[in-house]
């Protein structure tokens, strides 16, 4: 019973988080995602976050499109915010 109660509260927490925004896809032009970020903030976020675990990876190591998948992967892995992710992608693509 105790475990079930805990699971109930966890489920409620998850539901609240889920309610924070249900994503949808608009019929937009190919390549219009993600929205452009701020490259200056991106440089800062790149320096602050990447070295939390590993060495810094330079922009020329990957293509522009690969920086999108890599940054979204790191968003999940490192708990980056969506804005940080967009800023880092913009910074890496502009540095490429």
């Amino acid at each position: 019973m105790k475990t079930k109660t805990r699971h109930f509260f966890y489920s409620m927490g998850l539901a609240l988080l889920l309610g924070s925004g249900i994503p949808t896809v608009q019929a937009e032009e190919t390549g219009s995602y993600p929205p452009k970020g701020d490259p200056a903030r991106g440089a800062r976020a790149w320096a602050d976050n990447c070295t939390r675990c590993h060495n810094l990876r330079e922009a020329p190591e990957l293509r522009d499109d690969q920086w999108i998948t890599t940054s979204f992967h790191m968003r999940v892995r490192a708990g980056l915010t969506g804005q940080e992710t967009r800023d880092i992608i913009t910074f890496m693509q502009m540095s490429n």
Binding site: L17, S20, I22, C53, F72, R75, V76, R77, Q83
Partner: peptide
């Protein structure tokens, strides 16, 4: 599934989110 700027729903088999060494 990228729900919002502050939440990602992850479902399936994942590295344990407990601690740092095993997941990162």
């Amino acid at each position: 599934l990228f729900l919002s700027d502050s939440a990602v729903l992850v479902m399936g088999k994942f590295l344990s989110p407990l601690g740092q060494f095993r997941q990162n």
